[in-house]
Amino acid sequence: MEGDMMNLIKVCPSVVISLCYCYWIRKLVPPGIKRLVFLLPIICLYIFIPLSFSSVHLTGTIGFFLAWLANFKLLLFAFDMGPLSSHPLISLPRFVAVACFPIKIQQNQPRQNGKTPHPNPSSMIRYAIEGLALGVLLKIYDYSDRIHPKAIMCMYCFHIYFLLEIILAMVAAMARSMMGLELEPQFNDPLSSTSLQDFWGRRWNLMVTSILRPTVYDPTLKAAVNVVGPKWAPLPAVFGTFVVSGLMHELILFYMGRLQPTFWMTWFFVLHGIFLTVEIAFKRALTARCRLPRFVSGPLTVGFVLATGISLFLPEFIRCQIDVKAFQEYAELGQLLNNLTCGIFHNSNL
Rank of each mutant, 00 (worst) to 15 (best):
Ile344Glu: 11
Leu134Phe: 13
Ala285Met: 15
Leu168Ile: 14
Val305Trp: 05
Leu69His: 05
Pro30Lys: 15
Pro261Lys: 10
Arg26Trp: 07
Asn226Ile: 07
Leu164Asp: 08
Phe65Lys: 06
Leu8Thr: 09
Pro119Cys: 06
Pro93Ala: 04
Pro102Lys: 05
Leu247Ser: 04
Ala281Glu: 03
Leu168Tyr: 11
Met6Lys: 15
Gln328Phe: 09
Cys22Ser: 14
Ile47Phe: 14
Gly273Arg: 04
His148Ser: 12
Gly343Met: 10
Ser54Thr: 11
Thr59Phe: 06
His87Gln: 12
Thr301Arg: 01
Phe295Glu: 12
Tyr217Gln: 06
His272Tyr: 03
Val208His: 04
Ile103Lys: 06
Gly246Asn: 03
Ala331Gln: 15
Pro234Glu: 03
Pro261Gly: 10
Ala331Cys: 09
Thr277Asp: 09
Ile167Ser: 10
Arg202Asn: 15
Trp267His: 10
Phe317Tyr: 15
Ile105Thr: 02
His159Cys: 10
Cys154Leu: 15
Val244Asp: 02
Ile310Val: 15
Val171Ala: 07
Phe317Ala: 09
Ser123Ala: 12
Gln186Lys: 08
Ile147Phe: 08
Gln197Phe: 09
Gln186Ser: 14
Arg26Ser: 12
Val302Tyr: 02
Ile322Ala: 04
Asn226Phe: 11
Val305Arg: 02
Glu130Gln: 15
Phe313Ile: 00
Pro214Gln: 07
Trp264Val: 13
Trp68Ile: 08
Ala70Val: 00
Pro117Arg: 10
Ala237Trp: 05
Asp218His: 11
Ile152Pro: 02
Glu250Arg: 00
Phe199Gly: 04
Val278Glu: 09
Leu286Phe: 14
His346Gly: 11
Arg319Asn: 08
Leu76Glu: 12
Phe275His: 06
Gly135Asp: 09
Pro185Gln: 12
Pro13Gly: 05
Thr209Glu: 14
Gln106His: 08
Asn113Arg: 13
Leu89Val: 02
Asp80Met: 00
Arg26Val: 02
Leu76Cys: 13
Trp232Gln: 08
Ile33Arg: 14
Ala128Glu: 09
Leu69Val: 06
Ile49Gly: 05
Gly303Ile: 03
Tyr255Gln: 05
Val96Phe: 00
Phe345Val: 11
Ala151His: 13
Ile140Arg: 01
Val15Ala: 03
Ser52Tyr: 07
Ser192Cys: 14
Pro219Cys: 08
